[in-house]
Amino acid sequence: MPSPRVRRRRWPWIVAAALVVLLVPIAFIVVPILTHQNQGTAGQDRPVDEFPVQVTASGDDGRERALEVFSVRPGMTPDLTALEPGQRLIVSGTGYDASQGIYVAICVIPSDPTVKPGPCIGGVPDQEQTDVAEGTVQYAPSNWINDDWAWKLFGARSYDDEATGTFTAYLEVGDPVGEGFDCRVDACGIFTRNDHTALNDRVQDLYLPVAFAS
């Protein structure tokens, strides 16, 4: 049995090892947030004319991004002028910076492209991961895309292809009326924007205007 002196010598090493185990994962999460440098805006003109199902823009970071929405019914084009709660949409994008996570949601359109979109329907993020079979498509009022392993533990989806910055999100249209906004009256759109790790960076803020059925 180790003597009391030996046990006392071991305690600092045990504490140090425990701190390393605790602090290293935290560093992986916190350091990118603290060191992120804003890249400018997405370069999308505002307002967008009519209700297209696809938009493209060249961001200040030199990336050409494309955002498109599809109907869950093959061969059908979604009518973005008459959305209804509970309706399901598939949103795809390419050219995004996969080193940075994004949220995909229906949000109020700010008149100034340097202002963060929002508020958003359903909040961001909104992921329900309980008792869901592996591989099952999950529709939610908002989707969270992030390739970082640490954020995947909290329900983030992966990019489809990191090299091309391609993603797929599955939206279920929520209640158009929320605290301080009403998408039946306010101008709203299906948005992509950087996630909470770069909240003030507007370079991935693409959107498609939407309206709700009366």
Rank of each mutant, 00 (worst) to 15 (best):
R193A: 11
D148E: 14
T136W: 07
D195A: 01
Y139D: 00
L153W: 00
V124R: 08
P141K: 02
Q37N: 13
K116E: 15
P209K: 09
G178E: 07
N38P: 11
T192R: 04
T166M: 12
H36F: 13
T94K: 14
A211G: 07
D131C: 11
I26A: 15
D195Q: 01
G95E: 11
V24W: 09
T166G: 10
N200G: 14
D195F: 00
P2E: 12
L206K: 05
G123T: 05
V115T: 12
G135T: 08
G95H: 10
A66N: 11
L83E: 01
I14H: 06
E84T: 15
S158V: 01
E68D: 08
R8A: 15
D175E: 14
D49W: 08
S3D: 11
R63F: 06
F28K: 14
G93I: 05
T41W: 04
P117H: 06
T168Q: 14
V30Y: 05
S58F: 12
L153R: 00
V69W: 01
A42Q: 05
V24R: 03
P78N: 02
V185G: 03
G135W: 10
V132K: 13
A57D: 05
V137Q: 08
I14A: 13
T77H: 08
V53S: 09
D45T: 14
P176M: 05
F191T: 07
L153K: 01
S3A: 11
P25T: 03
R184Q: 09
N200H: 14
F51G: 05
T114G: 08
S92G: 12
Q204F: 05
R202D: 07
R5T: 13
A198T: 02
R184L: 11
G165N: 04
R88E: 02
T130P: 12
A187T: 09
V132M: 11
D182S: 13
D131E: 14
R7G: 04
E179V: 09
Y103G: 03
G118W: 05
D160V: 12
L19E: 07
A163E: 15
P209F: 05
R46P: 06
L171H: 00
G75S: 06
G118S: 07
G155I: 00
I106C: 03
Y139K: 01
T35P: 06
P52V: 06
D49F: 09
K152G: 12
T197Y: 01
V173F: 02
F70N: 05
V173T: 06
F167D: 01
V72T: 13
V210S: 02
A156W: 04
Q44F: 05
G93K: 03
D112H: 09
I102H: 00
E128K: 15
L83Y: 01
V69F: 01
G178Q: 10
R157P: 00
F70Q: 10
A98G: 05
G135Q: 10
P125A: 04
Q204M: 15
L171P: 00
V15L: 13
P78Q: 03
Y207F: 15
R157K: 15
G174N: 03
C120T: 04
V203R: 06
L208F: 02
T81N: 12
V115F: 08
I109E: 15
Y103K: 02
W11I: 15
T164V: 10
G189E: 05
V104S: 02
P117C: 04
V108S: 08
P141Q: 04
